[in-house]
Amino acid sequence: MKIVVIGGTGLIGSQVVSKLTEHGHDAVAASPNTGVNTLTGEGLDEVLRGASVVVDVSNSPSFADDAVMEFFRVSTANLLKAETDAGVTHHVALSVVGTDRLQESGYFQAKQVQEDMIKDSGTPYSIVHATQFFEFAKSLADSATEGDTVRVAPIKIQPIFSGDVAAAVGRTAVGTPVNGTVEAAGPEVFQLEDFIRKGLAVKDDPRAVTTDPQGLYWGAALQEDALLPGPDAHIAETRFVDWSARQR
């Protein structure tokens, strides 16, 4: 089975391609680095020829509100049209747990638009909602830093190892379309400040981390459990302490 992975050279995509290939599938990495550009449509028809499944784990190069909305609107429209022309029978997209609860954020507004376009496309689909990756603790800190202090909301988070996200996406890609959403999360719940503090320690980053009731998450104010998955989520096995030990 030919499976095209859009964003296939990135953190998640490269691992999805590797895992699918290990299991005997014809997994093709597609990204601007390989001559496939979903924003312009360049290379899409060629790479999708003969494909049964498309996995979209691409992301906007800019998180500015207008730019990220443009990216997901245009790239998703181009991709869905090319899939229809190629006869693709399963569209898999990676999104984020709590997207519908994060609509004060321009980024998550754009992700919601992407999801809605997929649902309305007529192509059988599966959307994988993952919690925040272990690897992105520093990015979260950067988005909430004032001076030398990281100020974050007093909320909970259930982060996951990127390799476990890739495994969840791969399993979904070779399965039957669910025409809905499945969730994947790590095995442990942290307070956000504790997760970021531990993530910065892995990088020997000395910034102080503190809670701020007015703190935002990518521009959105959240309820305490807004980032947590539902009861039917697939819970991955990799614990943060084990992942962090490998980083050192």
Rank of each mutant, 00 (worst) to 15 (best):
residue 96 V to P: 12
residue 24 G to E: 07
residue 77 A to R: 01
residue 159 P to R: 08
residue 216 L to C: 15
residue 77 A to N: 10
residue 242 D to N: 00
residue 104 E to V: 11
residue 189 V to C: 07
residue 150 V to I: 10
residue 26 D to I: 10
residue 16 V to N: 10
residue 76 T to P: 04
residue 100 D to Q: 10
residue 128 V to E: 00
residue 110 A to M: 09
residue 199 G to D: 01
residue 210 T to G: 04
residue 120 D to Y: 09
residue 24 G to H: 02
residue 226 A to V: 08
residue 175 G to I: 03
residue 90 H to D: 14
residue 68 V to K: 00
residue 18 S to Q: 07
residue 121 S to K: 00
residue 11 L to G: 14
residue 14 S to F: 00
residue 212 D to A: 12
residue 82 A to S: 10
residue 36 V to K: 00
residue 22 E to C: 12
residue 106 G to V: 05
residue 46 E to P: 10
residue 147 G to S: 02
residue 127 I to M: 10
residue 64 A to H: 12
residue 71 F to I: 01
residue 29 A to I: 03
residue 176 T to E: 15
residue 28 V to Y: 00
residue 186 G to M: 06
residue 10 G to F: 00
residue 178 V to L: 06
residue 206 P to N: 03
residue 115 E to R: 01
residue 7 G to E: 00
residue 150 V to L: 01
residue 6 I to D: 06
residue 72 F to E: 09
residue 108 F to E: 06
residue 35 G to C: 07
residue 178 V to M: 12
residue 192 L to W: 02
residue 37 N to Y: 03
residue 168 A to T: 06
residue 239 R to P: 14
residue 164 D to T: 08
residue 144 A to Y: 02
residue 67 A to G: 13
residue 108 F to P: 10
residue 164 D to M: 06
residue 56 D to N: 09
residue 71 F to E: 04
residue 183 E to K: 07
residue 145 T to I: 01
residue 123 T to Q: 08
residue 59 N to Q: 11
residue 219 G to M: 09
residue 117 M to Y: 02
residue 171 R to N: 05
residue 235 I to T: 15
residue 229 P to E: 07
residue 135 E to D: 08
residue 83 E to T: 12
residue 52 S to K: 15
residue 37 N to F: 02
residue 101 R to D: 15
residue 4 V to M: 05
residue 5 V to Q: 04
residue 243 W to T: 03
residue 126 S to T: 15
residue 243 W to A: 10
residue 175 G to H: 01
residue 157 I to M: 10
residue 194 D to T: 15
residue 185 A to H: 03
residue 153 A to H: 04
residue 70 E to I: 13
residue 225 D to I: 07
residue 73 R to K: 15
residue 230 G to H: 01
residue 8 G to I: 08
residue 2 K to T: 04
residue 219 G to D: 09
residue 112 Q to I: 12
residue 210 T to K: 13
residue 32 P to F: 00
residue 118 I to N: 11
residue 34 T to P: 01
residue 240 F to Q: 04
